[in-house]
């Protein structure tokens, strides 16, 4: 499924003294099966934008495009979109309400009208996708899991809808480095193996720069930059002006460049940096 927006503008509390344009003429295109990162300082419109992509908010002007067609106002159409575009909010475990992990994940499939046998299969399938199937968690209270497991159960409860697009708002906030790594390898696997389109809102470009096909940068409600990680992160000064951080290894490369070292600027991961520095010292490619 291809998702996009065309000249999307959204005004909060229109017609009141508090009217604020949260999005101003934003046009984006999310390709089927792609991995996307949405960056931007707090208040730049990231959460407002993703809520348009599954029909929770309606544009003040402009359009949301689903497979190239403008999204209508029809209730059935919006419901269908919300099934296909799964949205994982910030700190999603704060919205847990069920007494067991099973019931938490079964909530959406039951709402789809599946029978209990099918619901069971969906829950099992979702837990397998996030790698929690062997942990005997189904009867446990979701409130008593570890933070990493809670986050995975929250994601599983969205995956249980079998969406084509998964959108996550700051999915690693509060996770330890092990949990972050685990989550990113999970998302990368869902993207590659299950062909799920992924869009991640994040403040940590180092997490996504090596994975993303496309980086979108919002600033003050406008799309400030869009392109491959190489295209976006090579504009260091512009990013800093927008109040965004560069991945730390990219900063290192820029610093080395400034000192006259012949290293490339478009380096985002530790392994890329390792290779670049080895090349600079004439040590060639590492095995």
């Amino acid at each position: 499924m291809r998702l996009g927006t065309e000249n999307l503008t959204y005004i909060y509390m229109p017609g009141t003294p508090f009217a604020t344009a949260a999005l101003k003429g934003v046009t984006i295109d999310i390709e089927p099966g792609s991995f996307n990162a949405l960056l931007g300082p707090s208040g730049s419109g990231k959460s407002t934008l993703i809520q348009h992509l599954n029909g929770l908010l309606k544009p003040t002007s402009g359009r949301v495009l689903v497979d190239g067609r403008p999204l209508g106002n029809d209730r059935a159409e919006l419901l269908a979109l919300r099934r296909q575009v799964g949205l994982v909010f910030q700190m999603p475990e704060q919205q847990f309400f069920a007494e067991s992990v099973f019931d938490e994940i079964a909530f959406a499939p039951r709402n789809l009208g599946l029978n209990e046998e099918q619901v069971k299969e969906r829950v099992q399938w979702s837990l397998e996708l996030v790698g929690l199937e062997g942990k005997n968690l189904q009867k446990r209270s979701p409130f008593h899991l570890s933070s990493g497991q809670k986050r995975l159960v929250a994601i599983a409860s969205v995956l249980a809808l079998q969406p084509k697009v998964l959108i996550l708002d700051e999915p690693t906030a509060g996770l330890d480095p092990g949990g972050r790594r685990h989550l990113f390898s999970l998302l990368s696997r869902l993207n590659r193996r299950e062909k799920l389109t992924v869009l991640i809102v994040t403040h940590h470009p180092e997490d996504v720069a090596a994975l993303a096909d496309q980086c979108l940068v919002l600033s003050g409600g406008r799309l400030a930059l869009a392109g491959t990680p190489e295209e976006v992160f090579s504009q260091g000064e512009e990013l800093q002006r927008l109040g965004l951080a560069l991945p730390p290894v990219t900063c290192l490369m820029n610093e080395l460049n400034a000192q006259g070292a012949p290293v490339p600027g478009a380096v985002f991961s530790l392994e890329q940096a390792r290779r670049a520095i080895n090349n600079w010292f004439g040590r060639g490619e590492e095995p």
């Binding site: 707090s42 700051e170 906030a173 109040g243 965004l244």
Partner: peptide, 10 residues
């Protein structure tokens, strides 16, 4: 974790 939910500037 006072900065877990903040952007880099924050």
């Amino acid at each position: 974790e006072p900065t877990a939910m903040l952007d880099p500037a924050g």
